[in-house]
Structures are given as C-alpha cells and as structure tokens.
Design a protein around this nucleic acid. Sequence first.
RNA 1: GCCCGGGUGGUGUAGUGGCCCAUCAUACGACCCUGUCACGGUCGUGACGCGGGUUCAAAUCCCGCCUCGGGCGCCA
Length: 434
Amino acid sequence: MDDRTYAAEAAPGEEVTVAGWVHEVRDLGGIAFLILRDTSGRIQVKFEKEAMADDLVETGLGAHRESVVSVTGAVEAEERAPTGVEVVPESVEVLAPADTELPLDPSGKVEAELSTRLDNRTLDLRRAEGQAVFEVRGEVLRAVRAAFRAHDATEINTPKIVATGTEGGTELFPITYFGREAFMNQSPQLFKQLVAGSNVERVFEIGPIFRAEEHNTPRHLNEATSIDFEGAFCDHHDAMDVCEAVVVAAYEAVAENCRDQLEALDLAEEFEPPEPPFPRLTYEAAIERLNATGALDEQLVWGDDFPTEGERALGRDVGGHYFVTDWPAEIKPFYIMDHDDDPDLSTGFDLMHPRMELVSGGQREHRREKLIEGFERQGLEPEAFEYYTEMFRYGMPPHAGWGLGGERLLMTMLELDNIREAVLFPRDRQRLSP
RNA sequence: GCCCGGGUGGUGUAGUGGCCCAUCAUACGACCCUGUCACGGUCGUGACGCGGGUUCAAAUCCCGCCUCGGGCGCCA
C-alpha cells in the first residue's frame, strides 16, 4: 500500500489510489457517486454509467456501506463535489465487504445507544465524533508527558499486580498469583513514593488502576487511567503548581492541535483552556461558600465530605477549576501529612472541575514513626506494608504528589456525558468485553 | 451496597387493556432518476428480552429471571 493517497490529500491532476470505507453511495440514475472515507476525511468517486465499463460500475456501486474499497483513478477539480475534487475511477477493488445490515450507523444519521456503540466500538470509531475523542485523548497524553518532562519528572511504570492494597477502604480485585492471593493495584501511590525517595526524585506515571467498587455512574470505571505525579523536596503547594501546569498544558495542546477534532465534537466555538492560577480554597472556606449557596438541604459541618450535589453547587459557584486544600486529617488517607501546627488539618488537596473531582493529592508523611501511627489509626497492619515503610528508614525526603483521573480529565474537557465514552473498551460493573 | 427507571424490525423510536396480524425515521431489496452533498421518488422485507400469571382480550397489568441506563454512597 505504498502508493496509497489519503482522501484529504488527493490533488487535482494526479493519478491516485485511495482506499477506505464506503460511506455512502448516491445513485442518481445516469450518474452515481460513491463517498469514500478514510482517516483523513472523505472523497467523492464519480461513476458515469454510459461512459464507463459495466463491470467497473457494478463493482463500485455494488459495494455496500462500510465495505473497504480501493479506487484508482484521476483526481479532477470539480466545484460541484463536496470537497472540490473527485476521483474518476479506472479500477475499483473491494478489499473487504461489509454485511448489509450494520449494528450501528457510522454516518450518524441514526443515533445508537452507548451500549450498542461499545459493543461495536470499531464501527463507532468510524464516526467523526468517536474518532475525534481518541485523537484528542492521544494529544492530551502527549501534552501531559511533555509538561511533566518540563518539570523534570521521569516517566515510570509500577506493578499492577500487588500483594496488598494501597489505602485500604476501596475494594480490590483479587487474583491468584502462582497459588498466592494477590490483587490488581488500585493506585501507584506507594510505589511512586518509593521512587521519589531515590535519586530519580521526580516521577510520573500514566497507567491503569483497578477498583472493584460496584458503582454504576457516568463518572466511574473499574479500570481507569491514572496520571500520577510524585516529587521529592516538594510540598503540597509545589504539587498543586505542577498539577495546574499539567492540566493547563493538556487544554492548550488540544486547543492548538485539535481544531478539526473540536469541530467534529461541536466544541470549536467555546473551547477555552482554563486560566491559571486556579483558586485555592481551604476546606473550611469551601464549606462556608457551599453552605452560602443554599443548594443543600442540610448545612455541612467540619469533618463532612462533600456530597455529589454539593460538589456541583460549589462548582457552579466558582465557575471553573479550583483546588480544595487543608482537608480534615480524618477524611484523608494515612500517607497524607498533617499540618505540624494543627494535627486535625491535613495537607491533602483535591482539584475540582465544576462537574466532578479530578485530582487528589497532598504532601506525604515521610517520617516513619508518624506513618506507622497513621497505618494503625486507619486499622491497617503496618507489617503488611513493610516493603514500603522499611524504605523510610534510609533517608526519605519530604515529598508530595497527586493522581489525576485521565478519563475524567478528557470527559470534562470534551463535555462527554459518560466516562465510558473516554475509554476505548471500558470496564464497568457489567462490561467485561470487548 | 442501597434506591429508581427502561428493554418494540439491523439501528433509533411511537404506542398506558380492544382503535395494533404495531407508528415513524434510517438501513436493507426492487424499480425510476446525469451533479448528489443526510440526494430524491414509488413499492416491498423486517420487531413487542425470556418464563409464568391476571383477563373475554396483554406490547400495555402482576410476579420471577436476564439485560441496559441512572441516582446515592464512595472515589480518580
């Protein structure tokens, strides 16, 4: 296929071979048009029945929608054609026929439900919108990596099969590991800390996390992509700075490099990168502000977590991304450091989008004794985490970091209704294939 | 884990006890049409998730199962 030309690049005067899917055949009688679609766009192939060999016309017009065809012919400028050019075919080959009845309509004339789309993801991704989401996703990941590198962070990969859970609390998927009990990791948290404690110092990881919660919502997955950062000699303020930079970099890259995709998603008009710095509200201030909105039936008091409706109300009030800082120590995990001058207050922070939580982070407890106390307070057995706590004996620097839900970033960025749209093959409560 | 709402041709839908051997769109098949742009026109094929029950009568009401979606909790 060396001499294949993309639909969007076929120039008048050239002799080309274009290959792609039959998007539509419009047969007007004496003249007919086959719209061929590939990754770059569409191009029209013209069949003038009188002037062309019967078998050529038969092959071309007999191809069903979504069949894969290869067309060789001359490209001609034609202002009546949708893209200003059309191919006059000399030969047409059907490389792969498609069944006549499709499980969903890639031309988008008839909507399909999300579950139908996910069952037929290949066809779904032939829709311009589906293609656009994952092209944007690729750009986000590229931009995020570049932003981390600009902050001197090294990309790492940590195990997804582990002996113990990270934080307790959340449900883990159990597996059998050569006859021993093991789990799919819910977070790279402890591992990235162990690497931040080395000379590598600043690390990031983009990888899967697994959570066995049986929730059924448009914003949860059982396998998600976590974008994690951890930096030695960072405090929670530094971590928030990096977080902000990474999120903004993702938006800016999409604004700059994904115009066509935003167009396909009908977002081109309103798409705007968020303006740093994001407001940083303390938990206490956030509670007061939320209570003042009057959105909740019951006023929140110190120590409460924000209910879903509260997150949304506060999001509407703030109107953009914002951090919530200085959470009560009791509702943050053991590895988050508390303020020295107020042990009830933690350095934990969340980054919120008006629709939902995106990031959770904080400065970590690097003092071994305090860390072990924390384990005990949370009802975890420190012995199970010796591989982790032992390393705190040998010079663990102060460090901080965070984890960002990759799909949530994409979902909020592209205003997707359901997080499953942001994953090629989502894993949820009921979906295990494809 | 608790709670709520759905499942009708390939796809998306209308249909709250008889007006339904089920509506519309799209797809599919046949025919007509030489500039379509979601081409148009005529005709045609094609469906009530599964099982049980109520009733003279069930797509419609009830029960169970399967399945999908959503809300809360929790979280990324």
